[in-house]
Design a protein around this nucleic acid. Structure first.
Lengths: 204, 204
DNA sequence: TAGTATACTGACTGTGTAGTCATTCGATGG
DNA sequence: CCATCGAATGACTACACAGTCAGTATACTA
């Protein structure tokens, strides 16, 4: 981000890369990977197709760059906010809130992200590492729930299934918002979901 | 299904159509729509490509036929079982159970079905009607919850969001099973989810 | 058995698009 | 004002694949 100590070449390169990724996100979000063309990305970026290939080796790499970028950012924000929150109740709330709020600010990314879940069952798909990342997030969630269950903070449940349920019900509301089917604010959705989850796993 | 009163032509036609759809389901499940080729479907069906086009006008139509078939079946089974069940508690249980059990018997279909959700945010995607169907199912679920809330069977909640959550947490466990990440039986998953949901929306 | 009808075939065509590269542009500096 | 050089261009190539259709095989009929 800082330009200090960078050569002219590096500055330009970073700028072009960011420019292309921004355009790619718009196009991939609208059409999906297969239907999008590199020409469209080039046009959206205001560049010729050849220029795109000066900065990325293939269409697939552009896609992966756009995806990984956002995924890492979201995962990190989620992890951080959960860590900062005290107690299982706070952590679950942070999980839901972080993700739902993130949608609003990154609609294009979320369309790509969401579409990628559809490819999870195709072994030879664009992104094999995406499955691992998904698995890691579920495992992390599961571990937190497991610990809370042991500590008596929540009732005993099969935590693996609950982690999936929690993850996916949140994603469900994210999708709902993406489709414009929510007449509610993010805060309301967060509270609705949080209360639902909590009454579900609470030991009261 | 019954062959009575059918011409030779009709019988053959039905048989070939079913044969092709079966092969298509296998191929589309494995690769997804874009990555699958008509040649592969032909090979899986033990037919030449030209023959495929005697029974279907395009690749897209094969896909839609394979998809709609299964979607209608699942929706109908779900509706029926929910209707037969008494009370909101039974209906919710029927919803979860029907869908989770269906996965086990229709793995290929579910991979296609699941992949299609990924395309929901792409307006010009293969299947525009899929979104409507999804919406209808959510609306139906919402209506049932709304009624139960009015009747005091469950506590007052924003039913739209809860319907999405319920739908998607169920789909989440379906995906979990599809990926082979469940070490549990269907019955266990059904019970886990049902208990989670019920404690979540119960007014006790 | 010959003649006809119908199901099937697979080599071929047309198209869309990923990726290339010879050429042009424009900035810098002598 | 010209020379040099890296960045950008876009016409072009190669290829994959959906969809076609002239030709073949098979089943029926008389």
């Amino acid at each position: 981000m800082a330009f200090a100590g960078k050569t002219k070449h590096e500055i330009l390169s970073e700028f072009r890369t960011a420019e292309i990724l921004q355009a790619a996100r718009t196009v991939f979000a609208e059409k999906g990977f297969s239907e999008a063309t590199v020409d469209e990305i080039a046009e959206a970026a205001g560049l010729a197709k050849g220029t795109i290939y000066l900065y990325f080796p293939s269409k697939k790499e552009i896609y992966l760059a756009a995806l990984k970028n956002g995924v890492a950012e979201l995962a990190e924000a989620t992890r951080k906010n959960m860590e900062a929150a005290g107690g299982i109740r706070g952590k679950v709330h942070a999980f839901i809130q972080t993700r739902l709020e993130h949608v609003e600010r990154n609609r294009d990314f979320f369309k790509i992200y969401h579409a990628e879940f559809g490819n999870l069952t195709h072994p030879l798909s664009v992104n094999e590492s995406f499955r691992k990342l998904y698995r890691q997030q579920l495992d992390a969630l599961e571990a937190i729930l497991e610990k809370a269950a042991e500590g008596g903070e929540i009732r005993k449940t099969p935590v693996g299934a609950i982690a999936s349920a929690l993850y996916e019900m949140t994603r469900g509301l994210m999708l709902r918002r993406l489709l414009g089917w929510s007449g509610t604010t993010v805060e309301e959705d967060v509270e609705t979901l949080n209360e639902f989850v909590w009454r579900g796993i609470g030991n009261s």
